[in-house]
């Protein structure tokens, strides 16, 4: 195992590097699209059900199917990394749009009522009251999206672009355990590191959630 790692250091590192951006870039895209979409479904409630349903359908499509269907819909090559990024962005968006909407809806109540009654204008109320209060739920969604993306990227190796998944296809071809174990361990570690990173950011952003509840 150690010999394998030493002998293939460069390849492992480049696989890891690809894995990182293939999984995290889609999360970023998902967040950027989901925030306004989630807000709109709260502002115009009739949008909520269609958005949730569409998200549910998109989310239920298996990743491998999405990887081969997307090139048929938009002009990207099946073997292009962009294909993987688009597919995973679709998942992140589907998951996060609903989370943002649910989080914003869940904070509606006496507190937002009180804010409006004290003279907050809608935009200031959104940024000053509703979004901060919705942060814990939204961050939980972000954690799920990030971790599942990291585990999904390797499926891309079947069509040739899959970060650490490359180690799995190699292990299968050679009937050799070392690359597979290295790939699994690195993938799980990456997920753990990103997850902890988000938790730390969340703690920093939401100090009140740790203010000892009575």
């Amino acid at each position: 195992m150690i010999a394998y790692i030493q002998g293939n250091q460069a390849r492992i590192l480049s696989d890891l590097g690809q894995h990182v951006w293939l999984s995290l870039l889609p999360v970023l895209v998902g967040v950027v699209l989901a925030l306004p979409a989630g807000y709109l479904t709260v502002r115009y409630r009739w949008l909520y059900q269609p958005v949730v349903n569409l998200g549910g359908i998109l989310y239920s499509v298996p990743s491998l199917a999405l990887f081969v269907v997307i090139p048929a819909i938009i002009p990207v090559g099946t073997l292009s990394p962009l294909n993987i990024v688009v597919a995973l962005s679709v998942y992140s968006f589907a998951l996060l749009a609903r989370t943002v909407a649910d989080a914003l809806i869940s904070v509606q109540g006496e507190t937002t009522w009180a804010a409006a009654a004290m003279g907050f204008r809608p935009l200031r109320q959104l940024f000053g009251v509703e979004l901060p209060m919705a942060l814990p739920v939204m961050m939980a969604g972000l954690r799920v999206a990030t971790v599942s993306n990291i585990s999904l990227v390797s499926v891309g190796a079947i069509i040739g672009v899959g970060g650490l998944g490359d180690l799995f296809t190699r292990g299968l071809q050679l009937s050799y355990l070392a690359p597979i174990i290295v790939g699994i361990v690195l993938s799980v570690l990456l997920a753990a590191v990103c997850d902890s990173g988000i938790v730390l950011v969340q703690r920093w952003l939401t100090p009140w959630t740790r203010a000892g509840a009575r």
Partner: peptide, 10 residues
């Protein structure tokens, strides 16, 4: 959730 499905299969 963090286990890579394809890795586990392999």
């Amino acid at each position: 959730r963090s286990l890579p499905t394809f890795g586990l299969l392999s």
